Computed example of a mutant assay.
Amino acid sequence: MADEQNQAVPTFNIQRIYLKDLSLEQPNSPQVLLENAQPQVDINLTLAAEPIQEGLFEVSVTATVNTKVNEKTLFLVEAKQAGIFEIRNIPQEQLEGILGVVCPQMIYPYLRAIVSDVCTRAGFPPVLLTEVNFQAMFEAQQQARAQQEAGQQPN
């Protein structure tokens, strides 16, 4: 009977947070470094979550920072920070929110630090990723998914 009670208890634990992938490219160096124009910085974030095994999920946040000067790439940084989370006995509708909001919020500060550090070590000013409202992102994705499903249904 105690085993049955333990199985029903909601569980959320961080197993590990780690850097999964990191890339830095400076394809036009050193010539582009001599240009005095203001760089254009484009930042793209992507989230992913997938089950590893029963009750364990890998959640990752990837930042791609593409910096150009006069249409030439100054540098490109891509960093993927990930975490393994134990999540058990959570209703499906809550699980999606945990994977899409709570876990990325825990991972993101590590990603911000890594991107800033890599830029600095590459000889550039640090790129400081802004705070992200993962709740708003998640809600927008849910709304877009609902609209897409409603649009695909036959009338």
Rank of each mutant, 00 (worst) to 15 (best):
Ala146Phe: 09
Asp117Leu: 08
Asn6Arg: 12
Ile107Met: 04
Leu129Gln: 10
Ile14Asp: 02
Gln147Met: 13
Val132Asp: 04
Phe85Met: 04
Gln26Phe: 07
Val61Glu: 01
Glu35Met: 11
Phe124Ala: 08
Tyr108Met: 01
Phe75Trp: 08
Thr62Ile: 05
Pro27Ile: 10
Val32Phe: 03
Tyr108Gly: 01
Asn44Ser: 15
Phe12Glu: 02
Pro104Asp: 00
Asn155Ala: 14
Tyr110Ser: 12
Phe134His: 00
Ala2Ile: 14
Ala144Ile: 08
Asn133Ile: 05
Glu35Ser: 12
Ala2Lys: 13
Met137Arg: 12
Gly123Ala: 11
Leu33Ile: 05
Glu139Leu: 13
Val41Phe: 03
Gln142Val: 01
Val115Ala: 06
Ile43Phe: 05
Asn66Lys: 15
Gly100Cys: 09
Glu131Tyr: 02
Thr46Asn: 14
Pro10Trp: 14
Thr46Lys: 08
Gly100Pro: 02
Thr67Gly: 02
Gln148Glu: 15
Gln142Ser: 09
Ala136Val: 02
Gly151Met: 10
Gln152Glu: 14
Cys119Tyr: 03
Gly123Val: 07
Ala37Leu: 05
Tyr108Phe: 11
Leu22Cys: 11
Arg112Glu: 07
Glu93Cys: 00
Tyr110Asn: 11
Phe85Trp: 01
Phe57Met: 07
Glu86Met: 15
Val61Gly: 07
Ile98Asp: 01
Phe138Trp: 10
Leu74Gln: 04
Gln142His: 01
Lys20Thr: 07
Gln135Trp: 09
Gln143Glu: 15
Tyr110Asp: 00
Thr67Ala: 15
Ile107His: 05
Gln148His: 14
Ile84Leu: 15
Val69Met: 07
Val61Asn: 09
Arg112Tyr: 06
Ala2Met: 11
Gln143Trp: 08
Val115Thr: 05
Ala8Thr: 07
Glu54Cys: 01
Leu56Ser: 05
Glu54Gly: 01
Val9Lys: 10
Ser29Gly: 14
Gly151Thr: 05
Glu25Phe: 09
Leu56Gly: 06
Gly83Asn: 08
Val61Tyr: 10
Ile52Tyr: 03
Ala122Trp: 05
Val102Leu: 12
Ala150Glu: 13
Asn44Cys: 04
Leu76Met: 12
Leu76His: 08
Phe85Tyr: 13
Ala122Arg: 03
Val118Ala: 04
Ser29Ile: 07
Glu139Cys: 00
Val61Leu: 09
Pro126Glu: 04
Ala82Trp: 11
Gln141Ser: 13
Leu56Arg: 10
Asn155Gly: 14
Thr11Trp: 00
Ala150His: 08
Pro39Glu: 03
Glu149Phe: 13
Val102Ala: 05
Met106Trp: 01
Asn89Pro: 01
Asp3Glu: 10
Pro125Ala: 07
Val127Trp: 02
Tyr110Cys: 05
Phe124Ser: 06
